[in-house]
Design a protein around this nucleic acid. Structure first.
Lengths: 225, 225
DNA sequence: ACAAAAGTGTTGCTACTACACCCATGA
DNA sequence: TCATGGGTGTAGTAGCAACACTTTTGT
């Protein structure tokens, strides 16, 4: 048994939607292995991290300056040979956030941080392509029965904002009549008196997501369209 | 950073249904920590294991003599303090099987192996209660949109067998008229000419699960009742 | 008046729920 | 003939998909 030669990292697939495009947060590696490749933000589990979730949050903050976001554990990857330095188990996390809320800042062991459209990724370090595609698949499921979409839009949003998130994540158009009807019927949207102003055309009504009303829904609400 | 002090184990929550009762496979620990407590079968990731899945299968076979079963990764647990020996990350697996197909055999570092009803578990080592309850929750979901239930019954089965599995896993009765109707309509059951004989009352028709027909179903078929 | 997106209603269909009784068999 | 599960049908309802046009606003 080679217990002590196993290393554990915690990496995060952070998604956001920008102008209708689903994007992933990547950092550019400054050191070997995979020097100058783009990779998921993450790093070694530290014995001081109280939990894996906190380790993921810590690494994400250190490497990209993104903090205080929705994070959930995704899957663990541990095939022999996925890291040339030796046996490495990576616990992957999923994060959902709004780009506008953060100013990206690379850590000293990276030469860059950037958002990349999930459909136009550069070559990635390790098996990070596989990790991203697993995360994307999971997000598609999540968005259909959880309030995950609301982590990707501002607190006050229009129905269009919400629909754009669904279309970006699912990768297909949805019927907007049915979309609105269905979402308004769920009762998880709180209509505001305000309207969005930034447009040169008809202003749209703003809504809030109501967490409490969401909790009142049946076990597995379905937001599919 | 304390990279080398992190240990990785792979533990399995193996479920089966026996006479309408959902049961979990446990081993009795022979050594400290938690000596003589019951625990999930599992052990340290070995550098020779090509994948985590294979590590889980290997440990399950070594510790209980159960092999060649449906296995899927569940979740990773890594809170500080969950193992008194030091930082330990456990990658938990879910297994589904039929008790009749295996003869349990404890490994030399265990003093027993047994099936325990999930609702009457003894005190467990480490945070294994949490792991089991996570696995149970996941199984409830899985059974509703995947053919997981068929891993818990023999190849040839009656609709009653199938219904008992759903009731055991979900922990509630289901309407048997609707259950039959719905399942027969999915088209994933192949009716056989044979009937089950072991009863002292009316024999029931036997069915086979058709994997190919299952693949033809929509993305997320729903077997909920 | 034009461009752009906001917003809305109806119809047909499918699929779910709820519910109660007769049937076949072995002992 | 009795006990036990095997097996079936219907009616009401809810919710989904498909589909096109009018409204509001800024320029």
């Amino acid at each position: 048994m080679s217990i002590d030669s196993v290393r554990v990292t915690v990496d995060t697939v952070a998604f956001s939607v920008q102008q209708g495009v689903l994007e992933v947060l990547l950092v550019k590696r400054k050191f070997e292995p995979f020097k100058s490749y783009w990779a998921l933000p993450g790093g070694f589990l530290d014995d001081k991290d109280p939990t894996l979730d906190e380790a993921a949050a810590r690494e994400l903050l250190e490497e990209t300056n993104v903090g205080n976001v929705y994070l959930e554990q995704l899957y663990s990857f541990g095939d022999k040979g996925r890291d040339p330095r030796g046996r490495t188990v990576t616990i992957a996390y999923l994060a959902l956030l709004r780009q506008e809320e953060f100013e990206l800042k690379a850590s000293s062991d990276a030469s860059g941080v950037a958002w990349w459209p999930v459909n136009e990724l550069p070559p990635l370090a390790f098996d990070h392509h596989e990790v991203v595609s697993y995360a994307h698949k999971r997000l598609k499921y999540k968005i259909e029965y959880s309030p995950a979409a609301f982590s990707l839009i501002p607190g006050k949003f229009t129905l269009r904002d919400l629909q754009l998130v669904y279309e970006a994540v699912l990768g297909r158009a949805v019927d907007n009549r049915n979309f609105r009807k269905k979402f308004l019927n769920t009762g998880v949207l709180q209509e505001l008196a305000e309207t969005s102003q930034e447009t040169s055309f008809r202003p749209a009504r703003l809504y809030l997501f109501s967490e409490v009303d969401f909790e009142r829904l049946p076990d597995r609400p379905v937001f599919v369209f």
